[in-house]
Design a protein around this nucleic acid. Structure first.
Length: 425
RNA sequence: GUGAGCGUAGCUCAAUUGGUCAGAGCACUGGACUGUGGCUCCAGUGGUUGGGGGUUCAAGUCCCCUCGCUCACCCCA
């Protein structure tokens, strides 16, 4: 019988990697606190309509990338492909509009999308998601962008590029859309087949086509900024001014558009220069019409999602530190069977005192236990044999220096705990 | 969904034109050193060569299918 493996595009995050994730969660949690964002845990599946109405029926995500299934009662459910729609749903469902605005929330968790796996792209991937819901102020856009940049700053990431643009609103985007189509129509035959297909459905996407000929054509295309309505225009200007105010570096990119329908006004993206083709480590923007799309009252909002897998990849590529990998400090070595009970007692005293400790349970010889202690990078070893037990002492050996001394059994735990606090271990 | 490359022990890789080719190193276990690690030496555990089918006297090596991996397109975090 063939052995069962993990499904395509998903992976196990094993201990050698999971501690790095924990480090990033720690940094993120502190920043959330510093910026006043509170953590929520959302369901990983929702009613399918939340996404089809929220993200947009004709988007690639909804059309061909969702894991949709019926449960036993026939409801159509979908494994969440992103978190923003769920966050807004939760905001509406729990009447958060009656609290202080904006509601500043964040969450971390896996998202699922049926895509062809490739470097930095998995069918289950993790996102850090921050949303500020209930405010139309450009200062909130600035805060959200600043927060994402602060995560990258504290993690030590470099070689990043911050791109920003405005995609307008329902009143000015159609104007720009037709202006763009008008311009492109004359050179329609020169566009790549993909872009010819995008012409009617989503002409804005033609702007970020990678094909050389398309780029040459769109170089001279009308700029969104010249077609924004007064409100979108001033909003965009205030966002840019705010970013300047706090010293954030960014580049306005008129080619930047979004693949999800709910975006309005501000759109931004953070690109890593140390990834492959999937180089966005963070993407986000404003979505003033999302709440209405899913059946709520008009509620402005802005937020971003950062790709955890891609952040880890970039950090590894740049040789950055993930803090200290947790490891066992003390190994209790049993020299002979007569000392086993005492060794177990000592082990649990150490653990209760907060000293990371372990011992062999398979009856290995002293040499093998020592070897294991070395491999586990233990700081100290407590050796207990009948000789030590009868004299009420423990042989304490420091692995780094190899020096060994006998100390009173009563004082061992206290001594090792102190050593830990002094960060000697 | 499209294209290209690749799938040999837990890991990294060997195996001339198909002919003892199923191996090495690391890791793991044990021993030399019967109560002391990192070095050295020795031994052992471990693979129906991703799976299935075909060609052949003979296939890890060739052909087909399938699954998966990698990279790119596409899309996006």
């Amino acid at each position: 019988m063939e052995s069962i493996k993990a499904p395509r595009g998903v992976r196990d995050i094993l201990p050698d990697e999971s501690w790095k994730w924990a480090f990033i969660f720690g940094v993120t949690r502190k920043i959330a606190e510093d910026f006043g964002y509170r953590e929520v845990h959302l369901p990983i599946f929702e009613q399918t309509e939340l996404f089809s109405r929220g993200i947009g029926e004709t988007t690639d995500v909804v059309e061909k990338e969702m894991y949709t299934f019926s449960d036993r009662s026939g409801r159509s459910l979908t494994l969440r492909p992103e978190a923003t729609a769920s966050m807004v749903r939760a905001y509406l469902e729990h009447g958060m509009a009656s609290g202080p605005q904006p509601s500043k929330l964040w969450c971390a968790g896996p998202m699922m999308r049926y895509e062809r796996p490739q470097k930095g792209r998995y069918r289950q991937f993790w996102q850090l998601d921050f949303e500020a819901i209930g405010s139309a102020s450009p200062l909130v856009d600035v805060e959200v962008i600043a927060l994402s940049l602060e995560i990258f700053r504290r993690l030590g990431l470099s070689n990043l590029e911050v791109l920003i643009n405005s995609v307008g609103c329902p009143s000015c985007r159609p104007v720009y859309r037709s202006a763009l189509q008008g311009y492109l129509r004359e050179r329609f035959d020169e566009l790549c087949p993909t872009c010819q297909g995008r012409f009617d459905r989503n002409p804005l996407r033609i702007l970020d086509c990678k094909v050389e000929t398309c780029r040459a054509i769109t170089d001279g295309a009308p700029d969104v900024r010249d077609h924004l309505c007064g409100e979108c225009r001033s909003h965009f200007d205030e966002v840019l001014q705010g970013l300047d105010l706090i010293g954030a570096k960014f580049r306005i990119d008129k080619r930047l558009v979004r693949g999800l329908d709910y975006y309005t006004k501000t759109a931004y993206e953070v690109l890593s220069g140390d990834l492959g083709a999937q180089n966005a480590v963070c993407g986000g923007g404003r979505y003033d019409n999302l709440a209405e799309a899913i059946g709520g009252p008009h509620t402005p909002g802005v937020g971003f999602a950062a790709g955890l897998d891609r952040i880890v990849l970039t950090m590894e590529q740049q040789g950055l530190s993930f803090g200290r990998e947790p490891s066992i400090s003390v190994i209790v070595v049993v020299a002979d069977e007569a000392a086993r009970d005492e060794a177990v007692r000592l082990l649990y005293e150490l653990r209760r005192a907060g000293v990371p400790s372990d011992m062999d349970t398979s009856g290995k010889g002293v040499k093998a236990q020592m070897k294991a202690a070395g491999a586990a990078k233990a700081c100290c070893v407590c050796i207990l044999g009948s000789s030590e037990v009868s004299r009420g002492v423990v042989a304490l050996k420091e692995m780094a220096t190899g020096s060994q001394e006998e100390i009173e059994r009563e004082r061992v735990v206290e001594r090792l705990a102190a050593k830990m606090k002094a960060a000697c271990c």
